[in-house]
Design a protein around this nucleic acid. Structure first.
Length: 521
RNA sequence: GGUGCUAUCGUCUAGGGGUCUAGGACAACGGCCUCUCACGCCGUAAACCCGGGUUCGAAUCCCGGUAGCACUACCA
């Protein structure tokens, strides 16, 4: 058991977009697999056909692909090099990797349980169960109640009824008064008395599919899964899973469990939900999702301008931390340093502000050339493709380098540097009030003369011309420079003034001062 | 209601009997830098849920309480 190759799986349900909490679960699985030279599998758990959402599978796979979470076995995204469209490919010998395609496999195991009196057939309809729940407070289908229900334990002709097509389910027969121990890698031993467990439905004849619990155990066993790393919401059903492994006689190869703390709402308490994102204005999904079932559109981190590395880094630290002070982790850092033992036990509130900070960090690490490339489409939208071409990548990179430290997202670049591409249309009132003085027009007129005569337009040369003049006239550096800045930028903001004149060039600089003089005198 | 899990600054967390007058990061606030706005740098404020016990000594171990969360489906 200890010598087995580490194999973990991420097993989402295709019921919609992949929630950010699910992404973190996938990430931790991936980190654990990579760290131990193991395999990361992806299996689709679609045993509830009624909840299937078209496109969800593709979405999940594409999201993991975008984030750099690689799948070794099972279903994964394959990008068509020609069209860029995402296709699904299946790799590995243990398929199919979609539970709905594994019907035949499961029946064998259901039969085994039935044949060994470890499970039984029940005919109670949902309505009857509902009535029972109303009739008896805290009703539970278990050792204390199964004898009064309609099942193969209480009727003689169960086989005939089932064969005749009467709908039935198969329930797990849970023995009472047993202390079931679940060893959890994060929480230690969790002991639960089997009395509180109910006889879970393992299989329904209506669609010939098992429920999650049965399919999950059978697949994990068949696929050689060694570690089950999943959300804390599964902890209460873990004892049932242990019992199932035991029933099948698979205890010696039963995976180890690790139940991850939940991602909580930023405000108040409770699990982070899609609604919270809508309400508070941040995405809870990695990619934008167009729900084909209900037509809704949900925003995604990718479309909001996040870098996958930033999302990974942010998510990794929501529930896990090293003993040191390191905050920035590349995927390789995480693989090297991650450990399940250091995962927190308590839920983590989702702090969107910190997510922004991470993106800021990663944006600063990018080269100006890279950023210029990313900024280009936005710029083209603002000033036209032709103008962008005329300016050239090199100059755009230079401009981006001037302002990148002020932004967290590429999309914020435009508002920080628009004045370097387009002359100001109007002048910010607040800036004028504070920085445009009575003498400013006079100052600007004199400055204009100086600028026009200037041959060397380098920052140093301009500095050497303008500063002594201000000093000699005793105008005050701040007063002149800020007025000058208003002429060029339209407000009291932006990079160093000589960086601006450098980008603008002599002609444009002079033109802007003249325009301002005309409008502000 | 039942069962389980959890509990350190507003948030993510470090710490696992003495080194804790509790460390880091985000956010907040203040200062420095400076022609502006940012960035950056420096600093300030900010926490051991409560009560018992064990111990010379408890944020740390134990018990109880409280609170929060999760689960309690022919959903996953």
């Amino acid at each position: 058991m200890n010598n087995r190759k580490v194999r973990v799986r991420f097993a989402p349900s295709p019921t919609g977009a992949l929630h950010i909490g699910g992404v973190r679960t996938a990430l931790y699985n991936y980190l654990f697999a990579r760290q131990n030279d193991g395999d990361m599998l992806l299996r689709i758990e679609d045993t509830d056909s009624t909840r299937f959402v078209p496109g969800a599978e593709e979405y999940i796979l594409e999201a993991l692909d975008w984030l750099g979470i690689e799948i070794d076995e099972g279903l994964r995204a394959k990008k068509d090099s020609a069209t860029g469209k995402i296709e699904i490919e299946s790799v590995g010998e243990n398929g199919p990797y979609r539970q709905s395609e594994r019907r035949d496999i499961y029946w064998k195991y259901v039969k085994y349980l039935l044949d060994h009196q470890l499970a039984y057939v029940a005919f109670d309809t949902p309505e009857q169960l509902e009535a029972k729940r109303k009739e008896i407070p805290n009703f539970q289908y278990d050792a204390t109640t199964r004898s009064m229900m309609d099942n193969s334990l209480t009727c003689i002709n169960a086989k005939e009824r089932a064969l005749s097509g009467e709908p039935y389910v198969v329930r797990f027969l849970v023995d009472p008064d047993e202390e079931v121990v679940v060893h959890d890698l994060i929480r230690g031993d969790v002991v639960i008395n089997s009395n509180i467990l109910d006889d879970k439905v393992l299989y329904k004849s209506s669609d010939k599919l098992p429920t999650y619990h049965l399919a999950n155990i059978v697949d994990d066993h068949l696929m050689g899964i060694t570690h089950v790393i999943r959300g804390e919401e599964w902890l209460p059903s873990a004892p049932l899973h242990v019992l199932l492994y035991r029933a099948f006689g698979w205890e010696d190869t039963m995976p180890q469990f690790a139940h991850l703390p939940l991602l909580l709402k930023p405000d108040g308490n409770g699990k982070l939900s899609k609604r919270d994102g809508d309400r508070l204005g941040f995405p809870v999904f990695p990619l934008e999702f167009h729900n084909q079932k209900d037509g809704s559109v949900s925003s995604g981190y990718r479309e909001s301008g996040y870098y996958p590395e930033a999302v990974i880094n942010f998510l990794a630290l929501l529930g896990w931390h090293t003993s040191g002070d390191q905050e920035i982790f590349s995927m390789d850092d995480l693989i090297a340093q991650f450990s399940l033992e250091r995962v927190s036990k308590s839920g983590a509130k989702f702090d969107y502000e910190k997510g922004k900070w991470f993106n800021h960090q990663y944006l600063q690490m990018r080269s100006n050339e890279q950023l210029a490339e990313e900024f280009r489409p936005i710029l083209a939208e603002k000033i036209g493709e032709k103008a962008v071409k005329n300016i050239g990548q090199e100059k755009i990179a230079k401009i981006v380098g001037l302002v990148k430290e002020r932004v967290s997202f590429v999309s914020e670049l435009w508002e920080q540097c628009n004045f370097l591409f387009v002359a100001p249309e109007e002048y910010d009132e607040k800036s004028l009030k504070k920085r445009w003085k009575e003498d400013s027009p006079k100052h600007m007129k004199e400055l204009l003369v100086l600028l026009k005569a200037q041959k060397d337009w380098s920052a140093d040369a301009l500095d050497a011309t303008v500063l002594p003049w201000i000093e000699m006239k005793e105008y005050g550096l701040g007063i002149v420079m800020n007025a000058f800045r208003i002429c060029l930028v339209g407000a009291a903001r932006g990079p160093h003034i000589w960086a601006i004149t450098d980008v603008l060039g002599k002609d444009e600089t002079i033109r802007r001062v003249e325009t301002a003089l005309k409008r502000l005198s």
